[in-house]
């Protein structure tokens, strides 16, 4: 269908249609992702069980008071930790590998079934409910941030080599040199506690007011490094020949900047930006735990503190999956921005 409507049928024969190439590419990349995910899984598994024995996990879950050895055995049995870690010498054939903690806990993840956390909750369900809050902070931060950073960088580029530019860069470096913790502590203190503008922390149904502060703080925290980076990209573009040509055509500085520079700076910007989009789901560890936002970031922190292996492993898996998705998205976005780029 695609071919029939194309103006030059000959070209069709040489390169397969775009959407078929795309599907082939996607399949190849997904196959490529499998060994990576297996590697990630092995690594987390190894790291975790070098530290913890299943007994430790049981004790962690069972609390301090009056924990008997029987209770520990029972807990391990109930949660499937009563098997050997990697290789089951007692079993025969394929069961040597499948009847182990590693296999039993990992295999199902590849179909996105994360099983139950060590305290008995359904992890997939938890992830689904927590994704919303995470996104409601991360997405506005990302989008508004992108707009603000790029405009700020454009402004600095527009005024390059003037006092405004120098002041801007200095401001960026200053902002970069402050630890993210200070932004959060300071923001809560000033905006929440002194000025009573928004709730200090919390998260409510459809609450715009809960989202404002974390988003503002998130944006301010990233302004330094991002704006500076975009500025560097724009400056590099503006030094190129086509910009000189455009100027010679009599385009105003603003037109040059917005029409030509911004468009051509797209590829380097996309490299850095698209890869993080899927990771927005994971939320932010610091922001979420400070503001009491029930997202995936605070889930992860809690799991680390509680040494809940099932959750940590699920989050690592999810993180890697989203990262790989980000890489693929980046490649695809190149072809959309610049048709000369071919997927290979």
């Amino acid at each position: 269908m695609y071919c029939a409507s194309a103006r030059t049928p000959a070209a069709c024969k040489i390169t397969p249609p775009y959407n078929i190439r795309m599907i082939a590419y996607l399949i190849r990349r997904l196959l490529y992702a499998l060994p990576i995910l297996i590697g990630v899984n092995l690594l987390t598994f190894a790291l975790f069980f070098v530290v913890n024995t299943p007994d430790d996990m049981a004790r962690m879950q069972l609390g301090v008071k009056r924990v008997t050895p029987e209770a520990i055995v029972l807990w391990k049995q109930q949660h499937g930790y009563d098997k050997p870690l990697m290789i089951n010498h007692a079993a025969a054939g394929a069961k040597q590998f499948t009847n182990t903690i590693f296999w039993q806990k990992s295999a199902s993840m590849f179909v996105l079934d994360f099983g139950y956390s060590d305290d008995g909750r359904n992890i997939s369900r938890e992830i689904v409910t927590r994704m919303g809050p995470s996104l409601s902070i991360a997405l506005p931060t990302f989008l508004a941030g992108l707009v603000i950073y790029v405009s700020f960088a454009l402004l600095m580029t527009l005024f390059r080599a003037t006092a405004l530019d120098i002041a801007g860069v200095t401001l960026c470096v200053m902002l970069m040199s402050i630890s993210g913790l200070f932004y959060i502590i300071g923001g809560q203190f000033l905006i929440g506690k002194l000025w009573h503008l928004v709730p200090v922390s919390g998260y409510g149904g459809g609450g715009f007011k809960f989202v404002v502060l974390p988003v503002v703080i998130g944006i301010i925290g990233g302004i330094g490094s991002s704006s500076r980076w975009y500025r560097a990209i724009f400056l590099e573009e503006i030094g190129r020949d086509y910009v000189r040509t455009a100027r010679a055509k009599g385009l105003s500085e603003l037109q040059v900047l917005f029409i030509h520079v911004l468009k051509n700076a797209m590829i380097p910007i996309l490299t850095g930006v698209v890869v993080v989009i899927p990771l927005l789901f994971m939320g932010s560890l610091l922001t979420e735990s400070f503001f009491g936002i029930p997202g995936l970031g605070s889930y992860t922190i809690d799991a680390i503190n509680a040494q809940d292996f099932s959750v940590v492993r699920a989050m690592v898996f999810l993180g890697s999956l989203l990262y790989i998705a980000g890489l693929i998205l980046t490649d695809i976005s190149y072809t959309l921005v610049d048709p000369r780029v071919r997927l290979s």
Binding site: I185, Q188, F189, H196, P199, V200, S201, G202, S289, F290
Partner: peptide
């Protein structure tokens, strides 16, 4: 019951009457 893991927000909200 609201979850309040960090002490600073907890304390601020108490002083604000929440």
């Amino acid at each position: 019951f609201t979850l309040e893991k960090e002490t600073i927000p907890y304390w601020s909200k108490f002083l604000q009457g929440y």
